[in-house]
Amino acid sequence: MASIKTILVFGNPLVKKDRLPLMLMPELRKAFPQIEFKEFDAVEDLQKEGKILYILDSVEGIDQVEVITDIDMLQVNKIYSVHDFDLAYSLKLLKKMDMVDKVVIFGVPMKIRKDQAVRQLKQKIGSILS
């Protein structure tokens, strides 16, 4: 059983493929009132959010909600500018610097119905809490 105080939510409301995590926040807040769902961006300071991180983000190549705990599984984009400082890059950097102990990413598919995503997330978050 784990206690989750905060889930950091990543996404861009103006980009269809990337906005679902943000749209799920109201329903998730209702389902888990004890958890703070906080909109977040990779260029903000992840290391200040603690050494155990719970994250909700869109993930490419999945068709149902998945839980990812291994930072090494994340692929890093080639880096040219600040725009490439994404969540994967940020988490790998924190791991290299021993600034994070555990990461749990609730990965949401880019193409999934909202009600399905909510149902699956409730189950995944609930199973970690129980």
């Binding site: 493929k17 993930v59 490419e60 990812i68 692929q75 725009h83 994967a88 990965g107």
Partner: peptide, 16 residues
């Protein structure tokens, strides 16, 4: 320091 891209980033996973 070009600004070529936008603000959307998707996680890509090596599914192994």
């Amino acid at each position: 320091d070009p600004c070529l891209s936008c603000a959307s980033h998707f996680l890509r996973i090596k599914w192994n």
